[in-house]
Design a protein around this nucleic acid. Structure first.
Length: 828
RNA sequence: GCCGAAGUGGCGGAAUGGCAGACGCGACGGUCUCAAAAACCGUUGGGCUUCACGGCCCGUGUGGGUUCGACUCCCACCUUCGGCACCA
C-alpha cells in the first residue's frame, strides 16, 4: 500500500469535518448538562461580562452575530482563565415596532413579541454562545416591568422624578413624545419624520442633578470617544449669570438675567437679545414694534428645527422697542429678539457683545448696532473690526477694570458683580432633565393615579405591577390606547378610595434598559428587584460590549440610574460598567449599511447552514479589528472554513510520533506551541480577535507541515501541541473544539478546562535571523545564535559577499546593532 | 467650522522606531476527476535586468522634517468615515 492511500484511509477512519452535525450534537449536550449555568456560590473570582441585549425584531441579523460572537469568545476565555463568569442574555422587548405591528396586523404586541423572542432565542442558541438562559430577562414581562415601575416610585419618593408642563419634541409619525436625545437634526431618530414642539404635561427624571458627577470618568475604562460624546452632551460651561435692569413700559418685572461665559466683556454690551418664544417678549414689546415682533415670532414658529439650527444662514431679528440697563456702566441698550437665541439654553437671553462674539458681531453688522471692543487684543490695530476678537490683551473701555489682563478678567468682573449684587458666577449645562413619558401602550405603565382631591398619587408598592390590559385597541391617535381602555383607566384613589383615573402614558424604553444588568444577577426575585447579597457578589459589570450608537442615551441613562440607586441606598457603587468596548458596525458587501431596500443583506442563518456556526463566528472575528467593523465579504469565509478543516485533519490524524524529547523538531514544536499561546492569550485579552485567528491559522499550518514532513517528533510534545490548539480554539469555535477535545481522548468538557499556560523559556528561539543593512538598506540576512555579541555579528556581516560589495572602498562611520534583529553599517 | 478615528498589494488586513505586506480572499499554475465543484500543493506589491541562479531600483494619501534607520514620531496639507455644531 502506498503512502498516499494510507493517509487517505486514516482520514476516512477519522471522518470528515461536518459542522452541522457536531454543532447540533454539542448544543444539545451542553443544554442537557446545563454546562453554562452560572452558580452564585462559586469561590472563583467573579467576572460579569455583558453584551447589549437585542430588541426582538423577529430575526437575528448579522449585526447581532458581529456583536455577540467575539463577546462570547472573551467571556469563555475568562471562564477558562479561572473566573466564575456571568454572561447573560435577554430581550429589550417594549417599544414601537410591536405596537406598529399591532396596528397593521391586528395582533397584540405581547403575542407578536413573544413569538419573535421564541424565534430569536433559537437563533441565539444556534450561535453556540455560553449564555445562561436561566437568567433570561424580558423587559415586557410583568415580572420585570413590575420592578421598572418600582424604580419609578423610588425615584419619585427621592425627588428625582417630577411632572411638569413642557414644550416637548413630538413626532407626528410615531405619534409620541421624544427625548432630546432621540431627535437628530430636527428629525425623529426612529422614523426620520420632522419633529415639532408641543406643550404637554410630562414626567421627567432629574438627571441634571448628576451633571457634574456624570462628567467624572475616573476609574472607568471606557473609550475616549464615548467619554467625549457624553461630555459634549452634558455641555458644562462656566460663566456668570448677570442681572440687567429692564426699561420697558409694559413689563411687570424690573430685571432680567442672562447667562454668559464672558462676564468680562460686559462693558462691551451694545444690545440684548431674547429668544422669540421667551415669555417676556409679549409684555415688553412697545406698540410701535408689536406688529413686526408678532410677525417674526410667527415666522419662527413655522420654521423647522433644521432651518433654525443651520449655522450657514444669515442672522435675523427684530427690535422690541424695549431697553435694558447695563448695571456695570449704566448704559441703556436695545432689546431684540432673534432666532439664533434658544429658549432652552441658559435663560433664553443673550447679552450682545459684538466685538468679542462672532454671532453677535454678525448680528450687529446686519442691523447697524454699535461695536465696542473691551480688550486691546494684540492682533487688533484699532481700526474697524472685520470679525469678533478672540481672547487676549488687556481690558479697555471698561471703567474700573481698564488695564486688567485677559487671564484675570473673568474672575475680577465676576467678583465685582457678586459684591455689587449685579450677578454671580454660575455653571450652565446643555443637558436637560430626562423626559420619560410616552403616549404609547407597549411600555411599562407609569404607576400613578390621578385623584380629584389628592392629585397625582403614586400606586402603592404592594399593588405593583400596574398591568397592561391584554385587550387594548390599537389606533394611531396620538394618545396611548390605554386612554380608551375603560378597565384600565378607571380605578380608585389609594388615599381616599374615591373614583380616580390612571396615568395612561408609559415609560421610555430606555428606562427598562437602564437597570437590566442588575436584574440578571437575581432574575427571579419576587420581593425586590435584586437582593443586596447578589448585588455585592456580582455588580458592577466588569466588561460591557456594544455599539457606539448608544454613547449618549443608554450609556448615560444607566450611569444616572446607578448613581441614583446609590443615593437611594439600593447599591453601593457609582458606575454600572467598569470597562466598555465599542465594536464597529458590520456593513453589506458593497460597504453600505445592510438593508432590504439595498438588497445587500446577508442572513446569518444562511451562512450557518452553509458553513456552520464555528466558521461564521471565526470569520466575523477574522475580518478585521473589531472596533472598526466594515463590509462583510461573503467570499472570504472559505479561508476560515479551510482552516477549520486543516485543524480537524491535523488533530484527528496520526503524526509520526516517537519518544524523542530532545530532538530538534521537538524543540521547534514546543517553541511554536508556546509562542502561539503567548500571542493568542494577549490578543484575546485585548479584543484583537483578527490577529488571534491568524495566529491559530499559522500554528495549524505549522502542525500540518510538521506532520506531512514525516519527521518524527516527540509524542508528548505533539499531544501537548494539539491539546493547546484545541483549548485555544475553544472560545471562538466552541463546537469543533469540543468535538476535537473528545476525539483527543480528553475528558468532557473543553469549556471547563484551564487556559494553556505560556512558558517563556520554551518559546525562546535559540537562533535569530538578523538583517544586515548598509546605510539602512537590507543587503543580507544572517542566522546568528540568540543574543550574539556585536563583534560576532559584525564579523559575520562583513564576511558576506553582498554586504562587502556595498562596503568596499568606503569608510565605516558607525555600526548600529540591535541583538536578534538587525545590524546597520553606516558608510561614507 | 470644531473634535476624534482612519488612509498600506486587485480586496480584507498585519507590522506602533529596526527585514513592509503576517494571516486570509481573489488570481494564475498544478494534483485528483470523464467533467465540474470541493479538497490539496505551488506562485503572487510594482518596475528594470539576467539563459538561469541572482541582482538593482521604486513602494505604506501628499509635501517637508527628526533619526544610522520612519507605515510608525513631529509640522503642514488632501481624502474618507464617525460625532458635535448659533449652547451665549
Amino acid at each position: 500500500m502506498s503512502e498516499q492511500t494510507q493517509t487517505k484511509d486514516r482520514t476516512q477512519q477519522a471522518g470528515r469535518y461536518e459542522p452541522r452535525a457536531i454543532e447540533r450534537k454539542w448544543q444539545a449536550r451542553w443544554h442537557a448538562d446545563e454546562l453554562y449555568r452560572t452558580p452564585d456560590d462559586d469561590p472563583r473570582p467573579k467576572w460579569y461580562a455583558l453584551t447589549m441585549f437585542p430588541y426582538p425584531s423577529g430575526d437575528l441579523h448579522i449585526g447581532h452575530w458581529y456583536a455577540m460572537s467575539p463577546s462570547d469568545a472573551h467571556a469563555r476565555f475568562m471562564r477558562m482563565r479561572g473566573h466564575n463568569v456571568l454572561f447573560p442574555m435577554g430581550f429589550d422587548s417594549f417599544g414601537l415596532p410591536a405596537e406598529n405591528a399591532a396596528i397593521k396586523r391586528h395582533v397584540h404586541p405581547a403575542e407578536w413579541t413573544a413569538s419573535n423572542i421564541e424565534r430569536m432565542r433559537e437563533q441565539l442558541r444556534a450561535m453556540g454562545t455560553m449564555f445562561d438562559w436561566t437568567r433570561e430577562v424580558v423587559t415586557s414581562s410583568p415580572e420585570y416591568y413590575r420592578w421598572t415601575q418600582w424604580w419609578f416610585l423610588q425615584l419619585l419618593s427621592h425627588d428625582l422624578a417630577y411632572k411638569k408642563q413642557a414644550a416637548v419634541w413630538w413626532c407626528p409619525n410615531d405619534q409620541t413624545v421624544l427625548a432630546n436625545e432621540q431627535v437628530l437634526d430636527g428629525k425623529c431618530e426612529r422614523c426620520g419624520a420632522v419633529v415639532a414642539k408641543r406643550d404637554l404635561e410630562q414626567w421627567f427624571f432629574r438627571i441634571t442633578r448628576y451633571a457634574d458627577e456624570l462628567l467624572d470618568f475616573s476609574g472607568l475604562e471606557w473609550p475616549e470617544q464615548v467619554q467625549t460624546m457624553q461630555r459634549n452632551w452634558i455641555g458644562r460651561s462656566e460663566g456668570a449669570e448677570l442681572r440687567f435692569g429692564l426699561d420697558a413700559p409694559g413689563a411687570d418685572t424690573e430685571e432680567i438675567r442672562v447667562f454668559t461665559t464672558r462676564p468680562d466683556t460686559v462693558y462691551g454690551v451694545t444690545f440684548f437679545v431674547l429668544a422669540p418664544e421667551h415669555p417676556l417678549v409679549a409684555r415688553i414689546t412697545t406698540d410701535e414694534q408689536r406688529d413686526a415682533v408678532r410677525a417674526y415670532v410667527e415666522a419662527t414658529s413655522r420654521e423647522t428645527e433644521i432651518d433654525r439650527l443651520s449655522t450657514e444662514r444669515e442672522k435675523t431679528g427684530v427690535f422690541t422697542g424695549a431697553y435694558v440697563i447695563n448695571k456695570f456702566n449704566g448704559e441703556r441698550v436695545p432689546v431684540w429678539i432673534a432666532d439664533y437665541v434658544l429658549l432652552t439654553y441658559g435663560t433664553g437671553a443673550v447679552m450682545g457683545v459684538p466685538a468679542h462674539d462672532q454671532r453677535d458681531f454678525e448680528f450687529a453688522k446686519k442691523y447697524g448696532l454699535s461695536i465696542i471692543p473691551v480688550f486691546q487684543h494684540p492682533d487688533w490695530d484699532g481700526g474697524e473690526l472685520t470679525q469678533a476678537l478672540g481672547h487676549g490683551g488687556r481690558m479697555i473701555n471698561s471703567g474700573p477694570f481698564n488695564g486688567t489682563p485677559d487671564e484675570e478678567a473673568i474672575a475680577a468682573v465676576t467678583r465685582y458683580a457678586e459684591e455689587r449684587g449685579f450677578g454671580a458666577g454660575t455653571v450652565s449645562y446643555r443637558l436637560r432633565d430626562w423626559l420619560i413619558s410616552r403616549q404609547r401602550m407597549w411600555g411599562a405603565p407609569i404607576p400613578i393615579i390621578y385623584c380629584d382631591e389628592h392629585g397625582a398619587v403614586p400606586v402603592p408598592e404592594h399593588d405593583l405591577p400596574v398591568l397592561l390590559p391584554d385587550d387594548a385597541e390599537f389606533r394611531p391617535t396620538g394618545e396611548s390606547p390605554l386612554t380608551y381602555h375603560e378597565g384600565f383607566l378607571h380605578t380608585t384613589c389609594p388615599r381616599c378610595g374615591k373614583p380616580a383615573r390612571r396615568e395612561t402614558d408609559t415609560m421610555d424604553t430606555f428606562m427598562c434598559s437602564s437597570w437590566y444588568q442588575m436584574r440578571y444577577i437575581d432574575p427571579h426575585n419576587g420581593e425586590r428587584p435584586f437582593s443586596r447579597e447578589q448585588a455585592r457578589r456580582w455588580l458592577p459589570v466588569d466588561q460591557y460590549t456594544g455599539g457606539a450608537e448608544h454613547a449618549v442615551m443608554h450609556l448615560l441613562y444607566t450611569r444616572f440610574f446607578t448613581k441614583a440607586a446609590r443615593d437611594m441606598g439600593v447599591v453601593e457603587f457609582d458606575e454600572p460598567m467598569r470597562r466598555l468596548f465599542n465594536q464597529g458596525q458590520i456593513l453589506g458587501p458593497d460597504g453600505q449599511r445592510m438593508s432590504k431596500s439595498r438588497g445587500n443583506v446577508i442572513a446569518p442563518d444562511d451562512q450557518v447552514e452553509r458553513w456552520g456556526a464555528d466558521t461564521f463566528r471565526a470569520y466575523l472575528m477574522f475580518l478585521g479589528p473589531w472596533e472598526l467593523g466594515g463590509p462583510y465579504d461573503p467570499s472570504g469565509i472559505t479561508g476560515v472554513h479551510r482552516w477549520l478543516n486543516r485543524a480537524w485533519n491535523v488533530a484527528t490524524g496520526d503524526a509520526g510520533t516517537a519518544s524523542l524529547p530532545g530532538a530538534p523538531p521537538t524543540r521547534d514544536l514546543r517553541r511554536w506551541t508556546h509562542k502561539t499561546i503567548a500571542k493568542v492569550t494577549e490578543d484575546i485579552a485585548n479584543f484583537r480577535f483578527n490577529t488571534m485567528v491568524a495566529a491559530l491559522m499559522e500554528f495549524t499550518n505549522y502542525l500540518t507541515k510538521t506532520r506531512e514532513s514525516g519527521e518524527p517528533v516527540d509524542a508528548v510534545a505533539w499531544d501537548d501541541a494539539l491539546a493547546s490548539l484545541v483549548l485555544m480554539m475553544a472560545p471562538s469555535t466552541p463546537h469543533i473544539a469540543e468535538e476535537l477535545w473528545a476525539r483527543l481522548g480528553r475528558p468532557y468538557s473543553v469549556h471547563t478546562q484551564s487556559w494553556p499556560e505560556f512558558d517563556p523559556a520554551l518559546a525562546m528561539e535559540d537562533e535569530a535571523e538578523v538583517a544586515v543593512q548598509v546605510n539602512g538598506k537590507v543587503r543580507d540576512r544572517l542566522l546568528l545564535p540568540r543574543d550574539a555579541a556585536e563583534d560576532v555579528a559584525r564579523e559575520r556581516a562583513l564576511a558576506s559577499e553582498a554586504v562587502a560589495a556595498h562596503v568596499a572602498g568606503k569608510d565605516i562611520a558607525r555600526v548600529i546593532y540591535v541583538p536578534n534583529r538587525l545590524l546597520n553599517i553606516v558608510v561614507k
